[in-house]
Amino acid sequence: MTLQQTVSPHQFPTGSDAFPHRHLLGIAGLQPWEILFLLEEAKQWVDLNKKSSKHADRLDGLTVINAFFENSTRTLLSFEIAGKRMGADVVNMHAAQSSIKKGETLIDTAVTLNAMKADAIVIRHGSSGAVQLIADKVDCPVLNAGDGSHEHPTQALLDALTIQRRKGEISGLTVTICGDVMHSRVARSNIYCLTTLGAKVRVCAPPSLLPAALDRFNVEVFTNFDQALLGSDVVMMLRLQNERMNGDFIPSPREYHYLYGLTRERLMLANKNALVMHPGPMNRGVEIDSDVADHLEHSAITEQVEMGVAVRMACLDILTRKSRGVEGWS
């Protein structure tokens, strides 16, 4: 009886042993219970966010800097709301206004941010590895909000939370990720997250947009979307960047839609009640049709956005516990 209690999935190591990391730079390397701990912590914020008064005071007096070196509306907004709902003073730094444009090196920018004595820095950068480079130079926790084609950990966490809420246990589900996998940090973080949690992950892309050596990632690789969809419980579509649509990687948007667009008919190939996800912003009519994106039962796309705020609140809370002197977090 007691033995069963100790293996319950909702029991985590105590204090900082539950998440013994200073930064959140990626999903790669995280243990399954560490991911589950973050998801479990996020659930309380999902509930709070549904109330009319959405304020917590855990981060009162703390300063969070959102340093976005790459344009973003949705993720920046999500992090800003998350920080504010936790009670932190949130400051946004946009690339367009930053000294990067004046030729300052990233290291100098990092040192400058550090001197502002932020309590957490959220960074998005267009170059893989840039967030880690900054994290090595600052004293406070760093959250990766997307670096190049490398990782976008909070996206993977919010996707996992969405799947958990809609499907229950992630372990054993078949998840198909389709689109520009080569350039996608969302795909990489999701591959790590979902395989770590025991899902069967399928990756589908035109051959020109498949990265090398995917056989080393514990995923099944497809170039035929119809075959990939057969038996899928979750279909995760990726955004196709406009600049890759005209001959460099694929011949045209309409050919892409013909081969890889998620239409109502195609979705019928997946399992009944299959969940449809997209990290946004969507190219309606290219990678996904509107009647699928807006489908009340299948589509979880707006729920993903909702989960995003909760997951980011949890991440900010957990990463600042040490500096806030929360008991057991050293």
Binding site: A28, S128, D147, S149, R185, R188, P211, A212, A213, L214
Partner: peptide, 15 residues
């Protein structure tokens, strides 16, 4: 170079 390392790091790689 194309391979597991470049794919993990998300770096543009070539054959």
């Amino acid at each position: 170079t194309n391979g597991e390392t470049a794919t993990r790091l998300g770096l543009a790689s070539a054959t």
